[in-house]
Measured scan of single mutants.
Amino acid sequence: AVSDRLIGRKSVVMEAISPQNSGLVKVDGETWRATSGTVLDVGEEVSVKAIEGVKLVVEKLE
């Protein structure tokens, strides 16, 4: 599936994300709604860990 190619990809937070609120990330020039178990600020680099419905699950790059 097209979405499977996103797992493991680097992306950049475009709208802040917290455990309570989804935000936005940009992956390969496309904007996606995303969630995370931690707070992520605009501009942080993250990695796509999973896809749940139409949202990406991301975490901060170490």
Rank of each mutant, 00 (worst) to 15 (best):
V39I: 12
V46C: 15
K10E: 06
E52I: 13
P19V: 05
I7V: 10
K10D: 06
S36P: 00
K60V: 06
A34T: 05
T31H: 11
S18H: 07
E62I: 12
V58L: 01
E62D: 12
L24F: 10
L56W: 00
R9N: 05
S11R: 00
A1C: 14
K55F: 15
R33Y: 14
K26Q: 12
D28V: 03
S47N: 10
V2L: 14
K10F: 07
E44P: 01
E15R: 05
G29R: 03
A50Y: 07
E62A: 12
M14T: 11
V27H: 02
E59S: 07
R33Q: 15
V27W: 03
M14D: 04
E45H: 11
V48D: 01
I7S: 03
R5Y: 09
E15S: 09
E62R: 11
L40A: 05
L61H: 08
G37C: 14
S22A: 13
K49R: 11
D41F: 12
S18I: 08
V57N: 04
L61F: 11
E15F: 03
V13G: 02
I7N: 02
G29N: 10
R9Q: 09
V42C: 09
S22T: 13
E62S: 13
R5Q: 09
R9P: 03
V27Q: 02
D4C: 14
V25M: 01
V25D: 03
S36M: 02
V46Q: 00
L6H: 04
S11I: 08
L6T: 02
S22R: 04
V13Y: 02
S11E: 03
V54G: 15
V12E: 05
R5E: 08
V54H: 14
K60Q: 07
K10W: 07
V13T: 02
G23M: 00
E30R: 07
K60E: 04
V12C: 11
K49D: 03
D4Y: 03
T31A: 08
G8C: 07
E15I: 08
E59P: 01
D4V: 11
T31G: 06
E15T: 10
V57I: 10
G8E: 04
G29L: 05
G43W: 04
S36N: 00
E52W: 10
V54E: 15
T35I: 14
E45Q: 10
D4R: 12
L6K: 04
G43D: 05
N21I: 13
S47M: 15
V27D: 00
G8P: 03
L24C: 08
L61V: 11
W32G: 08
S22W: 08
Q20N: 12
L24G: 03
T38V: 11
